[in-house]
Design a protein around this nucleic acid. Structure first.
Length: 639
RNA sequence: GCCGAUGUAGCUCAGCCGGUAGAGCAACUGAUUCGUAAUCAGUAGGUCGGCAGUUCAAUCCUGCCCAUCGGCUCCA
């Protein structure tokens, strides 16, 4: 008589089954409750193959292919099939690792020749054959010695290295075999290759073995996969959509900025409209900082090299800095704004009553970023930070950090971004004592806790002078960007011997916070362009309204209207060309201008305008003053 | 910096096997004077990323360099 076990189904109902039943069979017994397309199962919360045998009482639930977990399993299975296809198609390829990632998967290979886009097609068609053959993914557990022997015999030294680096207490590992192809893998996998219906290889790239640039560079193939062809098509459509929002493309189409070979890589040239957009953001920032008790300051672009030696930049930031010589003196072009701010603090004796002191600078910095990392406005070599340094007593630290976090929240709300928070701790190459790092890290953590924020911790990811809180904003396409950051620093006040006279009449060391809200204005603009797809909200839009004449006879009135708008502080243009109205509207629409003001016989006679909104909505004929009020009203909260 | 790909008119892109280049849009000129996403006609526009090399001849083949794109590493 077979032993019976109790299985708890997803709907909480319990059923009795013979021991040894497979998870997939148990779920199939209750078809009505089973997801349409399970790729794996969870047994007591742990993901397992559908072929996993149940030996004791267990709670079982399906993992649907379309769920986040299911997709990840599906993609991982696809990556195995890709590895097989690659090794069958090309001789002399060794496999490294091939995980599922956020939007797909990759597999790293050692292949001296490298893969071409044509190779991807060959690989993909072989993958389709393997998928069509509907081969089982079979799990087998072996001792790690046995696994090492297996992969050594196949010449797979990356797999051998991975096995050798497993913790000592790991005695057995699992292998998955499909279609005769064996790979080291924790699993789970979907039951068979027939489930891999919708996938596509996207591109090849180099990637360092284990992400370390001292290691050999491998060939990485990226791909993606979905439960259905429709979902894959939708994903590919979104990729196309993202391309249309690319800030580099929109920057050109909307005439905002250029990056020019002749000027140099990573150097942005702002055109009038881009400059206007930037100025609007900067004006908003100045106002918000003044409201919050910051003092505006401006430091020099170059400072003597000796000062950079004192700050530690010379020893820890040299490869990112530019230097120049003036009158036989070496000067460093500033990569950060803190130095001048230190000197401002030192300009007189400070009392505890003066603190906190908050110095704000829209500071332009130069950093020698590696050539391969430059990217539009997002990664440049000269950029302007909305930078501030706050000098305060240790007891003020918590309140200051929380106030900055509030500021960040306010700013993100204004621009409509969600964000995540990360705490980064001491890196390897750093300055300062253990005690200071401990204090600084505790201060950041404490403030995060006190403001009730949820955050993740990145060990070893801090700046060389202190730990930091990073705010990663999420744009309309759910991509994450690092903008705001708060860094806590005990070291620079020490190195510059800053002090204040305390209540006790003695000298004390202040603490410093480095922080940015939008980060680099250039990057923030790039994110904004993509977030809004170039259709900026009215208050940000470089051109808020364009006056469109129907025929030449309306030009005099058109000029008058434009003049009145300019007088009222509205950023207005006129399109008085000899073109048909439809043509001008199309052009204004492509420029994403918020309001198009149509001027024809009716408007000229009545002294009105007919605004058409960017969304196509027509507001009818209204007086010019009424339109001015409308614009002012819509921008009011940002003034 | 590393791996791979790409670079033709302002933009998007053609250009076969080596015989010095073409389209659409934009620009300019003219006609047209028009009511909510493209009026018609004409004109002009190119060191084929740069420098070498091979060749009778190079946009095309080779090498080096520059820049860009996709990644890796790094980062605001």
């Amino acid at each position: 008589m077979v032993r019976q076990i109790k299985i708890t189904m997803p709907d909480e109902k319990e059923v009795l089954s013979p021991a040894g039943i497979k998870a997939g069979e148990a779920l199939a017994a209750r078809q009505d409750r089973v997801a349409s397309f399970p790729v794996a199962a969870k047994v007591n919360g742990a993901p397992v193959d559908l072929s996993h045998s149940l030996d004791g009482d267990a709670a079982v639930e399906p993992i649907d292919a379309a769920s986040a977990e299911g997709l990840s399993i599906l993609r991982h299975s696809i990556s195995h099939v890709m590895a097989q296809a690659v090794q069958e198609t090309f001789a002399g390829v060794q496999v490294a690792i091939g995980p599922a990632i956020e939007d797909g998967f990759y597999y790293d290979f050692e292949y001296a020749e490298g893969f071409t886009p044509q190779d991807l097609e060959r690989i993909e068609s072989r993958m389709r054959e393997i998928a069509a053959a509907d081969c089982l993914f079979e799990r087998r557990e072996v001792s790690r010695e046995e696994a090492v022997e297996l992969f050594r015999s196949k010449g797979e030294r990356y797999k051998v290295e991975l096995l050798n680096d497993l913790p000592a207490d790991v005695k057995t590992v699992s292998l998955y075999t499909q279609n005769g192809y064996i790979d080291l893998c924790r699993g789970p996998h979907c039951p068979s290759t027939g489930m891999l219906r919708a996938f596509k290889l996207l591109h090849v790239a180099g990637a360092y073995w284990r992400g370390d640039e001292r290691n050999r560079m491998l060939q990485r193939i990226y791909g993606t996969g979905f439960a259905t062809q429709e979902a894959l098509d939708e994903h590919l459509r979104l990729l196309e959509e993202a391309k249309k929002r690319d800030h580099r493309r929109l920057g050109r189409e909307l005439d905002l900025f250029q990056l020019n070979d002749e000027a140099g890589p990573g150097l942005v040239i702002f055109h009038p409209k881009g400059t206007l957009l930037r100025t609007i953001i900067e004006d908003w920032e100045r106002k918000e900082h003044l409201k919050r008790g910051y003092g505006m300051v401006i430091g020099p672009q170059i400072l003597k090299a000796d000062l950079w030696k004192r700050s530690g930049h010379f020893d820890h930031y040299l490869e990112n800095m530019y230097f120049t010589e003036v009158d036989e003196q070496s000067y460093g072009i500033k990569p950060m704004n803190c130095l001048a701010h230190m000197l401002i603090y030192k300009a007189k004796i400070r009392s505890y009553r003066d603190l906190p002191l908050r110095y704000f600078e829209l500071g332009t910095v130069h950093r020698h970023e590696k050539a391969g990392v430059l990217h539009g406005l997002m990664r440049v070599r000269q950029f302007t930070q909305d930078d501030a340094h706050i000098l305060c007593t240790p007891s003020q630290l918590n309140g200051e950090i929380r106030a900055i976090a509030d500021f960040v929240g306010y700013a993100m709300g204004i621009f409509g971004f969600e964000y995540e928070v990360e705490l980064s701790t001491r890196p390897e190459n750093s300055i300062g004592s253990d005690q200071d790092w401990e204090l600084a890290t505790t201060a950041l953590e404490g403030a995060l806790r006190d403001s009730g924020m949820t955050y993740e911790t990145n060990e070893g990811d801090g700046a060389f002078y202190g730990p930091k809180i990073d705010f990663k904003l999420k744009d309309a396409l759910k991509r994450k960007w690092q903008c705001a950051t708060i860094q806590c620093d005990f070291t620079l006040p020490e190195r510059f011997d800053l002090h204040y006279i305390g209540e006790d009449g003695g000298r004390h060391r202040p603490v410093m916070l480095h922080r940015v809200i939008l980060g680099a204005i250039e990057r923030f603009m790039g994110v904004l362009i993509e977030h809004y797809a170039g259709a900026f909200p009215l208050w940000l839009s470089p051109v808020q309204a364009v006056v469109l004449t129907v025929t030449d006879s309306h030009i005099p009135y058109g000029r008058e209207v434009r003049g009145r708008l300019l007088d009222a502080g509205i950023r207005a243009e006129g399109d008085f060309r000899n073109e048909k109205l439809g043509y001008k509207i199309r052009e204004a629409q492509l420029q994403k201008t918020p309001f198009m003001l149509v001027i024809g016989d009716r408007e000229a006679a009545s002294g009105q305008v007919s605004p058409r909104q960017r969304d196509g909505k027509n507001l009818g004929s209204i007086g010019v003053e009424a339109f001015i009020d409308l614009v002012h009203e819509q921008c009011k909260q940002f003034k």
